[in-house]
């Protein structure tokens, strides 16, 4: 077999997953895209495992473990999404902006304040 075909497909699938993570608004759709990315990696692992005829079957075993972890992750991710939904009634990713960096309130423009002080002092 030619290894290039599954490898390319896996790469393209990964890119699709990247697009989905960065472009979708609903958090559950983002989770779906993350699953796509994980699956792309799994395909890659299996293809290379078969190609190298690994006696330890490392690729396929790792694929199994990846599936396990992905499942755990989806479970926890959904629990978090449900919590967010409970608190804010929306699960839009771009509505969660508390990490935003704002200008310090009340500081105003210190340059203007300094200029005023100089004027008053003269």
């Amino acid at each position: 077999m030619h290894i290039v075909y599954p490898a390319v497909i896996s790469a393209l699938l990964f890119a699709v997953g990247v697009y989905g993570v960065l472009a979708r608004r609903n958090a559950i759709l983002v989770l779906m895209a993350v699953e796509l990315m994980l699956n792309a990696v799994n395909l890659n692992l299996v293809a290379f495992d078969v190609w190298w005829r690994d006696r330890l079957h490392g690729g396929q075993v790792l694929t199994l473990f990846t599936i396990v972890i992905a499942a755990a992750e989806v479970g926890l991710g959904l629990a978090i999404i449900l919590l967010v939904y409970r608190n804010r009634k929306v699960v839009d990713v771009d509505a969660l902006r508390t990490l935003r960096e704002d200008a310090v309130p009340g500081e105003g423009d210190p340059a203007a304040e300094a200029a005023e002080a100089v004027e008053a002092g003269l």
Binding site: V21, A23, V93, R97, L99, R100, E101, A103
Partner: peptide, 15 residues
């Protein structure tokens, strides 16, 4: 102020 622009709190921007 210019440096603050990417810090809009949206996780997708960070990602």
């Amino acid at each position: 102020g210019a440096l603050r622009l990417p810090r809009d709190g949206d996780p997708q921007t960070y990602l």
